[in-house]
């Protein structure tokens, strides 16, 4: 609690400090016409199934990243580091100490883009959405390109303790190393389970996985 408070103060100071010299376009972002924008969000959306309007409430990471030009500016370096530290602190490491699960199960998680839309059910198994943005196994040619290729991920990096930790942190909470990464925070937001993360870890790092063949 105390930590959050200190963080808010730092954030506030940074925002205030950044405002006067802010040469960027301020016609549209946070601070411009806030009342109208909030009213527009309020009146513009409705609950449907599991996708309720409280999803429009932003946490500090989402708020910061909603003006990408400002968020990427040199002035915001400290703020980015702060957000990364906050997200890293939220990472839950494997409770049974096991980094790698079953790569075959991991492939299924990577393939599935299902879950958490208003047409999905609360109790269904969510997917990891991985192939939507990444190349992974060479057998799957219908891969997206928003994220980097993960082909040969383990072959290139090996599986030292550091690689395992970095990869786990990235999957659990992608904002722990890149404040405004496009990648969802799989574990932190409860999109995928610990076991699913272990299985995706195996897909990326198990020498037997087709990713590393």
């Amino acid at each position: 609690m105390k930590q959050t408070f200190v963080f808010s103060l730092v954030a506030l100071t940074l925002v205030v400090a950044a405002t006067p010299g802010h040469s960027a376009d301020n016609s549209w972002g946070s601070g411009a016409d806030d009342k109208t924008f909030d009213a527009m969000l309020q009146s513009g959306f409705k609950d449907r199934g599991i996708a309720t309007v409280d999803r429009l409430k932003q946490d500090s990471t989402q708020k910061f990243c909603s003006d990408p030009v400002s968020a990427a500016s040199p002035k915001m370096e400290k703020m980015r580091k702060k957000i990364e530290a906050e997200n890293l602190a939220s990472v839950k490491w494997p409770s049974d100490g096991k980094w790698l699960g079953d790569w075959k199960e991991g492939e299924k998680v990577a393939q599935s883009g299902k879950g958490l839309t208003w047409s999905d059910k609360a109790d269904q198994v969510n997917g990891g959405n991985c192939y939507n943005c990444h190349q992974i196994s060479p057998k799957e040619i219908a891969f997206g390109t928003i994220g980097p290729s993960l082909y040969n991920y383990g072959k290139i990096r090996g599986n030292s303790e550091e690689v395992l930790r970095t990869t786990w942190a990235k999957i659990f909470n992608a904002k722990s190393s890149n404040a405004c990464s496009n990648m969802p925070r799989g574990g932190h937001m409860g999109i995928i389970t610990e076991k699913q993360i272990q299985d995706v870890m195996a897909l990326l790092l198990d020498p037997q996985s087709p990713v590393n063949q």
Partner: peptide, 23 residues
Amino acid sequence: NLGKRLFYYEGGPHDFACATCHS
């Protein structure tokens, strides 16, 4: 301007904005 702001507005369990895929 409101539309531009909504385009970049992140939210939900996946932190997605329109901009996540379209920028």
